[in-house]
């Protein structure tokens, strides 16, 4: 009887350990179509700065033909 219990216990442990490798995380990221889900770009805030915009525009103006 005790041998049977021991075998059952060992079997249960082996099953638990074996199935651990089969675990798959159910914590998935769900994406809604058409909506950006990534990180915020700090550049967007910088582009709103009028001083920075003026600097950028001045640089772009340098492309004009002389």
């Amino acid at each position: 009887m005790s041998l049977r219990r021991s075998l059952l216990a060992v079997g249960a442990i082996a099953l638990t350990v074996g199935l651990t490798g089969c675990y798959e995380s159910s914590d998935v990221t769900r994406f809604e179509p058409g909506q950006y889900k990534g990180a915020d770009d700090p550049l967007l805030a910088k582009l709103e700065d009028p001083e920075f915009r003026a600097e950028l525009d001045q640089r772009f103006e340098g492309q004009r033909d002389r």
């Binding site: 950006y36 889900k37 990534g38 770009d41």
Partner: peptide, 23 residues
């Protein structure tokens, strides 16, 4: 951006199309 299944594309206020490589 229209076909991306993970919606990793975004467009800046200046119209530059960028994407998030983590997605």
């Amino acid at each position: 951006a229209a076909v991306c299944p993970t919606d990793c594309f975004y467009t800046t206020t200046d119209g530059i199309v960028l994407h998030d490589k983590d997605l």
